[in-house]
Structures are given as structure tokens and as C-alpha cells.
């Protein structure tokens, strides 16, 4: 029997970053990228029902947070302007130390997914 891989929805508005996000996560989950321009982010997430969400835009992060809180799904926000990785925890953003890299993103997403699975 094959275990089902967790599914991570990547909502990205920067094409050059999208590929790096997907590449970083692919080893631990099935990552699929969606553009977020003018989209109904909450509606998209409701239809996808991901196990975790990664976003790289401020607006999309706010929208995705609404869904993440309601559905109790981990949300990771890559703040490209501030060069920070932010994780939604109990309605607040917690900043990870260091600058976002493939490794730090993979670690944060893995921790979030497996914490949720254990809960």
C-alpha cells in the first residue's frame, strides 16, 4: 500500500520564486502552484483542501489566513520584501529566524505538516 503524500498549495505571484518553492517542498509533499492575481483565494483553497499552504504575497497571505484559521491548516508566508519566513500560529504570524532559503522553507513546511498529522 502506498502512503498518500501530503498536498501543499503554493500561492505565488512571483514566477521566479514559484519554481524554487515547489522544488524545495517536492521531497516531502506534493506541491502544486497557483497564481494569485485577482483570484478568489479562499474559494480556491476551499476547493483544493490542502494539507498546508505556502504564499509569497501580502494580500494572498491575508486571504489564505482566513481559510487556514477556519480549516486549521498550516500556513507559511514568505515575505519577500522583508526577507522573512512567517508561520501562522494561533492567529498570529511567528517569524522564523534567518532568511528564507530552500532548506528553511522545507523544514518549516515539514514541521507544520507533521505537527498537524500528529495532532
Amino acid at each position: 500500500m502506498t502512503a498518500v503524500r501530503p498536498f501543499v498549495a503554493v500561492l505565488s505571484h512571483v514566477p521566479l520564486v514559484t519554481v524554487a518553492i515547489v522544488d524545495a517542498i517536492e521531497g516531502i509533499a506534493e506541491a502544486r502552484a497557483f497564481t494569485t492575481k485577482d483570484g478568489d483565494t479562499v474559494g480556491l483553497l476551499r476547493s483544493l483542501r490542502p494539507d498546508a499552504i505556502v504564499v509569497d504575497g501580502y494580500g494572498a497571505a491575508g486571504e489564505a489566513a482566513k481559510y487556514a484559521r477556519a480549516a486549521d491548516v498550516p500556513l507559511v508566508y514568505i515575505d519577500l520584501q522583508e526577507r522573512k519566513l512567517r508561520v501562522l500560529e494561533a492567529n498570529c504570524w511567528r517569524d522564523e529566524s534567518g532568511r528564507p532559503s530552500s532548506e528553511s522553507l522545507r523544514n518549516v513546511v515539514a514541521e507544520a505538516i507533521y505537527d498537524r498529522a500528529r495532532a
Binding site: V14, L16, V19, A20, I21, R83, S102
Partner: peptide, 14 residues
């Protein structure tokens, strides 16, 4: 660039 993730994305494409 100071953002490793952005460098990784550009590199993967180029």
C-alpha cells in the same frame, strides 16, 4: 541577492 530562495528560483530557471 540576499534572499537565498529567490536566487534558487532564478538559478533553477537559467
Amino acid at each position: 541577492d540576499a534572499l537565498p530562495l529567490f536566487r534558487a528560483g532564478v538559478r533553477l530557471h537559467l
